[in-house]
Structure formats: C-alpha cells, structure tokens
Amino acid sequence: MAKTILFVEDSASVRQVMNSTLTREGYDVILACDGQDALTRLDGSKIYLIISDVNMPNMDGLTFVKSAKQMPAYKSTPIIMLTTETQEVKMNEGKAADVKAWIVKPFQPAQLLAADSQLIQA
C-alpha cells in the first residue's frame, strides 16, 4: 500500500511539480496551500511524512508544525521543513518543534526524495 505524504506549500507551481515527483515515486500525496489548509487535512488518518514550507500566508509552517505535533495521531510523524530561511534562530525553532530535517531552497527533487525515504524508513 502506498505511503501518504502531506505536502504543504503556498507556491502552486512548486506544489504541482512535487506532487507529480512524489506520485511517480509511489507515494500518495495530500496537498495543502498553507498551514491552516494543512490542519484541515489532518483527520487522524495515517500520514508517514509531512513536508512543509516555512513562509506561507494565513498560517506559517512552524505554527502549523507545532499544532500538528499537539495531535496524538501525528506526534511522531517525521517532518521536513522547506525554506529560504538561512537564519539559525528559525532553524533552532524548527528543531525545538521536533522537525527532523531542514531543507534550504532551492533544492533538487532528488534531494527531497532521498530525505523522504530516509525519514520514512527510520
């Protein structure tokens, strides 16, 4: 059975490319356009990995991650943050929120896929 990944990103084009890349790799992908939208997708069903952008309208990625981690079903779900942020303060905030990997944009799809399989298998 295909493993489900929640991909949260406000850029529609990045969302579309990553959706087709992840689907081609055999994952089921749930897409959300910001943190608020992503929270509505968390209905208790199993999600193997959450990939989220940091800077997004309505609700930013770190606020979303902190809310998701409060839910028992997603307490141990690994999370990858995608960001243009290079500031250590933000990165440490992510680490404190139990984020497992921090990817600075621009990244290649292959890099993200490698991180995905590493975290899903772990």
Binding site: V14, K105, P106, F107, Q108
Partner: peptide
C-alpha cells in the same frame, strides 16, 4: 529539465518573497 525548472521556480519564489 524538470529539476532545472523546479529550481528556477524556487528562485522565482524567493524573488517574489
């Protein structure tokens, strides 16, 4: 090519921000 386009999209995202 998809990878290159994807990287370009992310640059565009940065510029837009």
């Amino acid at each position: 090519e998809i990878s290159d386009v994807f990287v370009a999209l992310q640059f565009q995202d940065r510029v837009s921000q």
